[in-house]
């Protein structure tokens, strides 16, 4: 068990090293034009410049903060809708009948497909951007919540009822806690979808944001900024993953002890 984990870690580091080496060789040896693939060092320099002077009107910090704000706002607002939706799907036949088809309709849609419609309906402002990201997060959280609520055993529900729980108390004290590990999994998947959708959301009429920064740079073939932007998004997504794992370990310790 420990040995395999060791092995995985070593292989991971080796893979990273090889990718960096090939990347460096490819750009320094001129296998690929630096316009298309700047060297890692060049990307690093571009990153430093992004932090100190910025690009497309804002510093890297401001771009990242704008994107982060959109993703977080979408997550919080979506969770407020998706968790109750998931509970209704799991607990009410009528709720399931009404909501399940809607969720299943939204789930497979690519954000770029419904982006124009949302702009027509809600304009090009900030709410549209958050809505596009939020729509992509809706299905993962709702479906995970519904699955999580079903994790509560009939015995646990009966136990609560026989100890005097009302239906509301069963929901609050049994169904939701039982669902928490799955809800967190849903949030994790939703964040992935959120970052994926971010660039699409910032396609139109954004003045700030990592997606906007990448697209602006791409139009002028400033490849190092494009790559730096991609790496920052990747780092942010990874940081969220780490935070969620810590949250799970600290606040949902029973998740690994079902």
């Amino acid at each position: 068990m420990r040995d395999t984990r060791h092995m995985t870690l070593l292989t991971g580091i080796a893979t990273l090293a090889i990718v960096l080496t090939v990347w460096t060789l490819a750009s320094t040896r001129g296998w690929v034009s630096p316009v298309f693939l700047p060297s890692p060092l060049q990307v690093l320099k571009a990153g430093q410049l992004l932090i100190s002077q910025g690009y497309a009107g804002s510093t890297l910090g401001a771009h990242a903060a704008a994107s982060l704000g959109r993703v977080m706002a979408a997550l919080v607002l979506t969770a407020l809708v998706a968790v109750p939706v998931g509970v209704l799907i799991a607990t009410s036949p009528v709720g399931r009948g009404v909501l399940d088809p809607i969720i299943e309709f939204v789930r497979p849609l690519p954000p770029l497909a419904y982006l124009p419609l949302i702009i027509i309906w809600f304009g090009i402002g900030e709410p549209s951007k958050i809505l596009v990201i939020g729509l992509a997060m809706l299905a993962p959280i709702a479906i995970s919540t519904a699955a999580g609520v079903r994790q509560a055993s009939l015995g646990q529900i009966h136990a609560a009822r026989s100890l005097g729980a009302t239906r509301g108390q069963v929901l609050w004290f049994v169904l939701l806690p039982a669902a928490l590990p799955q809800i967190l999994t849903g949030v994790r998947i939703a964040l992935g979808a959120g970052w994926t959708t971010l660039v699409a959301a910032e396609l139109v009429a954004a003045a700030r944001g990592l997606g906007y920064m990448i697209q602006s740079a791409a139009q002028f073939l400033v490849t190092d900024v494009v790559i730096a932007g991609i790496l920052v998004i990747s780092a942010l997504a990874f940081a969220f993953e780490v935070i969620l794992r810590i949250v799970e370990r600290l606040f949902i310790p029973w998740a690994s002890h079902r």
Partner: peptide, 16 residues
């Protein structure tokens, strides 16, 4: 109702 409390075979405790 709580005047008829139940103990279950699979304990049905709340792990949270």
């Amino acid at each position: 109702g709580r005047e008829r409390a139940v103990v279950f075979q699979d304990d049905a405790l709340f792990p949270w």
